[in-house]
Computed example of a mutant assay.
Amino acid sequence: MPRLDEYLTITEAADYLGVCTNTLRNWGASGKIKERRNPINSYRLYARDDLDAVLQQINDSGEYPSGWSKPRKRKPR
């Protein structure tokens, strides 16, 4: 069983990638990023390695992976 502290919540993952939480939900629903679920409360969890892979693709190509819509910038609250 993987340790839960190796994963980020949806809010933490969104901040890590610089996108909105709804963007992550959409990417997960379409299979563009792997979502895991907390076994206790079924909240979405994201492995840091998966998020790093997305960031690496962005850094290598200068744009979001093929077929991914570029997220709009988050408005400050």
Rank of each mutant, 00 (worst) to 15 (best):
Q57R: 07
N41D: 14
D15N: 10
S30T: 12
K70F: 00
G18L: 02
S61N: 15
L51S: 08
G31L: 01
L8D: 01
L17C: 03
I58T: 02
W27F: 10
D49G: 11
N38C: 15
V54Q: 00
R74Q: 13
T23D: 12
S42M: 07
R44G: 07
R25N: 15
E6Y: 11
W27L: 10
E12I: 02
W27R: 08
W68S: 09
E12N: 07
Q57C: 05
T11A: 12
Q57G: 07
Y43S: 13
D50F: 01
L51A: 09
T21Q: 05
Q56S: 08
A14W: 03
G28M: 07
D49F: 04
Y64W: 14
D49A: 15
L17D: 02
P2H: 06
N22C: 08
E6M: 11
K75C: 14
G31Q: 00
I10D: 03
E63G: 04
A53V: 12
R77D: 11
Y16G: 04
L24M: 06
L24A: 06
G18Q: 04
A47L: 08
E63S: 10
M1G: 13
I10T: 13
E35F: 01
T9M: 09
Y7I: 06
V54A: 04
R36N: 03
Q56A: 11
P2F: 06
Q57S: 07
S61I: 12
K34D: 07
Q56W: 02
T21P: 02
G31I: 00
R72C: 12
I58H: 07
Y16Q: 08
D50H: 05
V54M: 09
N22T: 14
N41V: 10
D15F: 01
I40D: 13
D60I: 13
R36C: 01
E6F: 12
E35I: 03
N38M: 14
A13K: 04
T23L: 08
S66R: 10
Y64S: 03
T21C: 05
S66D: 10
E6T: 11
T23S: 14
E63R: 12
K75W: 11
G62R: 05
K34T: 12
T21S: 06
L24P: 03
N22E: 14
K70N: 06
T11C: 07
R44A: 10
S66F: 08
Q57V: 00
S30A: 11
K75T: 15
I33F: 00
P76Y: 04
M1K: 03
P65M: 09
G67R: 00
L51K: 06
L4I: 09
K32P: 03
P76N: 12
D50C: 09
A14C: 06
I40K: 14
Y7W: 09
V54G: 01
I58E: 04
K75A: 15
Y16H: 13
T9F: 07
V19N: 01
G31F: 01
E12C: 05
D49T: 15
L8W: 00
